[in-house]
Design a protein around this nucleic acid. Sequence first.
DNA 1: TGTTGACCAGTCTTCGAATTTGGTCAACTA
DNA 2: TAGTTGACCAAATTCGAAGACTGGTCAACA
Lengths: 236, 236
Amino acid sequence: MHEEALAGATERADRILDAAAELLVRHGYRKVTVEDVAARARIGKGTVYLHWRTKRQLFEALALREAVVLAEELVAALRADPATLLPHRLLTTSYLVVMRRPVLRALTTEDAPELQPSGLDRELRSQELLVVERLFDLMAKRGLFRADVPNLRYAMTASTAGYFLLDRIDPTSAELDVQEKADALAYTVRHAFEPAEPPDRETLAAVADEAIAVMEELLPPYLARIYTYDRKQRTP
Amino acid sequence: MHEEALAGATERADRILDAAAELLVRHGYRKVTVEDVAARARIGKGTVYLHWRTKRQLFEALALREAVVLAEELVAALRADPATLLPHRLLTTSYLVVMRRPVLRALTTEDAPELQPSGLDRELRSQELLVVERLFDLMAKRGLFRADVPNLRYAMTASTAGYFLLDRIDPTSAELDVQEKADALAYTVRHAFEPAEPPDRETLAAVADEAIAVMEELLPPYLARIYTYDRKQRTP
DNA sequence: TGTTGACCAGTCTTCGAATTTGGTCAACTA
DNA sequence: TAGTTGACCAAATTCGAAGACTGGTCAACA
């Protein structure tokens, strides 16, 4: 790929990722072959390997692209209304985005251990963890969480996980529609972890800006990871 | 088995179930053979089939026996202190019992689809569901839950499930010890679903009695199912 | 009457062959 | 010459049949 074609290159990368996405939701990680993806993107198999070193990195790139979309949606929502930063709103927004995007849904629903974040290299992973950590700290410090929650991180994760995972286990939960579940989630988070009085408008706006900044810090390395050929990294 | 030996019979059933329990926690449902269980109980394999029609029913009996223990522990706790009926206390008590009893822990942790409640026959299952339903209604009606929770059942299930399932998925959560997790669970349920003011002592005691009655209704059919040979039922 | 283990049919495991697939690279094209 | 490709290879996966195992039965036994 020569300089001039770089734009076209990430364009092609996107086409490949589109193909991978389509096939992933239809057949699941295991049953999708690199050749299928290449064929669907109307390119040769070798060309796929000009973008990523392994099948796994290809699908990790797909997962990252979806993560970026999620982050961008959150940022957009925060810009439109800083009150989106309230934990229950942030959570339900995320929940709805995940459940409405087939790929994200497949990634959380289908347990493809190959695609779990553990597959990512340490730098990026720790960066991501750091962001979550920083967001939590930021929000906690600015009074978006009640101060006395024991093991806040764990409590949030555990209380929230069920909403994402339950349909996998208990078919009963399929009866409710996504919006109802989102409402239940919102209610739970709101009452379990938020203070009675939300912060006033100004601080909310200020913290939202900080949060946006933190999240946007994450995007460049993610984008780099998606579209830049990585000569070293080779997740084994 | 003649009349006189009936006591001895359930005694033997218990010995078999003990053997099954031991082997279940060690090797998991799949790897345990009926012959192993019989050998460990120092009886012939055929004898196992004098108690239950299938391997599956044997292990369902084991699961039921554990459920009975759980119910009894709850009843005991309720008798000792009616305030145990407060949702956050009821939940954490259950959680701690489950996590501290290897068999219950294995049954919830290890996903042996054969042992999921779905395996039980409709009558008993619906009876069990009915009990949960009735407990929920009872508690809701008497003010143990806040009145405005949307989809209370689902919200409770989803918010709670993560605490039982998370270690399976996210090894990070293994860092906290059981008591800390139980505390987090208690906090969450307490704030998410309970009213600011708990019911007064008297009504609490009264409702606890009702709850005990409801739960104890469940025990006889369970016990029957565990120890009575069932000539018809044959879960396919 | 109560117990058992030999026995049977169906299932699961094994393991080597055959096929598929991830990944490479020499040849090809524009 | 930069960029692309599909034939090619080794490794992994699937397939299939032989064999082993296990759930469940029941005639024989205690």
